[in-house]
Design a protein around this nucleic acid. Structure first.
Lengths: 347, 347
DNA sequence: GTGCTGATTGACAACGTTGTCCAGAGGTTA
DNA sequence: TAACCTCTGGACAACGTTGTCAATCAGCAC
């Protein structure tokens, strides 16, 4: 007997199988399977022998084979824009927790806001036969998913709707949040308000712009097109856009920032300027209350978005063929100071 | 012919296989495999027929079966403390990027700083036969991994060393960073400096404490034990600890915060107090420069930690049996204001 | 025509697990 | 004693893919 606890009698890189365990315990293959899976119908004595063999060989069930046999992988895929974005941390974590409650693992990937990369990633996950997908879409056409959904991959879109297919969706109330934010600025006396948002092809960016326009229209204010800037959220572009609005022919007295990355850059730009400019940002962020003035934001509940999406996903996995659901998570205006600054006396 | 583009002739939840494709294209199973994998030796005409059948049936290769056959899963596991912690976002993303460059997917899990949960997660990943593991350990005994590593699972520990086994490790220079931070405070005239850190069983917490003590000792300053508090980073506890140090019999004039969560709470506590207290935090965070005063920090390069770890992992996967490596990533003191505040005149 | 070469193709086993089904042991009852 | 259960355990096929190997065929030199 040369086997050790590490199973070193087998060549490096290969692992003991149930067959090896069975041979060592002197039982049949299926009996090992029964013990490993806690199935009934094994005498305590036999079970002990099998357990000893498992420990001695360092056996670990090969889930690839199990998955192949059973069809379910007990894993779900999460495709988002950028794992490093603080908005997605709590969301991922919430999805993970729900997955864990259902005994599933989470496979994670960033699309980097690139439709091609999203599709590549999603299809790779489908090839792995994940049971379900949570997608924060970068693409605007998801027909490539039709065969997958038809084959039973539960799919939930989060934060932005699916493109050109019907599917479960969980959204934040971007429109309402943006409208409330801009109305808030208007209530504090502002008439010339700028909006800096994300790329227009991103759904939330469009919704927030719509909220902005609606609030302005509701107050009877005309929007000067030089007050609106959509595009990359790279600091340079945002800085340029903000500066242009603040120093333009009809300078804005307040800014509405379309997401957390924009807000952060806006805060930096405004900090450099002599006179205070009102600011409301979409998305809350850590320490928003400690900057001076504290930043008024429209807070989204990222964790709730993730939790809702994952719950919906598992409901669909368990259950029957209910038609696609759409759920909306409310947003909440959090006044902290920056949004309550009045316009300058001469503005 | 009742098959449609969705393969609806098959029952819901089941998917076409290579066998189905082969039958439809009128070729052998292996020929389909060759086409799917881009292997040579297939005439253009045959390839076209196979491709047509693939499209018509909505075939997608089942990677579970492929993995079972090939032995490599092209996936790596990442176990960290909390996906929602902003420190781990960039780290995860960096690991993901490297994995992507190597054609691997990332399976992600949070240990919630619970050793049992770490082990459960790691073993689940091993059962999936991930090719490698990147672990930010919560446990302090990793002997349970020995059979896995012996079986060829490339394993790299990040941010904290492995417990009771030899393994590849990538660490930040916690000791050096902490020492530099405290020396910085001392250079600005502080003599009574408090340290609030994470739970003492966490390696980095211990290293940072050691850095603190070393810097104090090097300056010939005795440490009053009421100035040191290790424990949970929950806001309540940190708040309590900070308040006790600031209002104690020998009140501190400066604080050194052991990680980003502590720093954030410390900033809040100090903001409520009438007179300024110097503060240096371990870990950088967004907007640290915009709080007033801006927060001096010891910055760690989380992305570089992740990148280095993942690179090391794939080097080991490709390569031979080099002995375990240990790499240290430097930290960097970023003075921004809060660390340069002098002690009060009467302090 | 024969034999050889190289290209194309397919039959078959194997990967490690689980579900189905059957065999044998041992006990109970008529 | 025979018939009939119950309980335990094992043989075998199947999951969908890939590696091995052999068969077929066209083209070509002799």
């Amino acid at each position: 007997m040369t086997d050790t606890a590490r199973g070193t009698s087998r060549r490096y890189g290969s692992r003991p199988t149930m067959k090896d365990v069975a041979a060592r315990a002197g039982v049949g293959l299926k009996t090992v399977s029964r013990v490993v899976n806690g199935e009934p119908g094994v005498t305590p004595e036999t079970e002990r022998r099998v357990q000893d063999a498992i420990t001695a060989l360092g056996f670990r069930r090969n889930d690839s084979a199990r998955i192949l046999r059973k069809g379910r992988t007990a894993s779900i895929g999460l495709v988002l824009e950028d794992l490093a974005d603080p908005f997605y941390g709590p969301l991922s974590r919430a999805v993970e927790e729900v997955a864990r409650d259902h005994g599933a693992l989470l496979i994670n990937g960033s699309s980097a806001e690139d439709p091609a990369r999203e599709q590549e990633l999603v299809l790779a996950l489908c090839a792995r036969r994940v049971d379900g997908l949570v997608i924060i879409p970068a693409a605007d056409d998801h027909r490539y998913l039709e065969p997958e959904i038809a084959a039973g991959v539960a799919t939930v879109f989060v934060d932005r709707p699916a493109g050109r297919i019907e599917a479960d969706t969980v959204l934040s109330d971007s429109f309402g949040g943006a409208r409330a934010a801009v109305a808030h600025l208007i209530a504090h006396g502002h008439r010339r308000i700028g909006f800096i948002g994300d790329q227009p092809r991103i759904h939330t960016a469009g919704e927030r712009l719509r909220g902005y326009r609606t609030a302005m229209a509701e107050a009877g204010l005309a929007v000067d097109e030089s007050w609106v800037s959509l595009g990359s959220t790279a600091p340079d572009r945002v800085r340029f856009a903000a500066t242009a609005m603040l120093d333009g022919p009809r300078p804005v007295t307040a800014l509405f920032a379309g997401n957390n990355r924009v807000t952060v850059t806006a805060v930096r730009v405004l900090a450099e300027r002599p006179r205070p400019v009102a600011l409301v940002g979409f998305d809350d962020f850590e320490l928003a209350d400690l900057v001076s003035p504290a930043i008024t934001v429209v807070a989204q509940d990222a964790a709730r978005l993730g939790r809702t999406a994952a719950t919906m996903l598992f409901r669909r996995l368990d259950g029957a063929g209910i038609p696609p659901q759409r759920e909306e998570i409310p947003t909440r205006l959090v006044p902290r100071g920056s949004g309550e600054l009045p316009p300058p006396a001469d503005g």
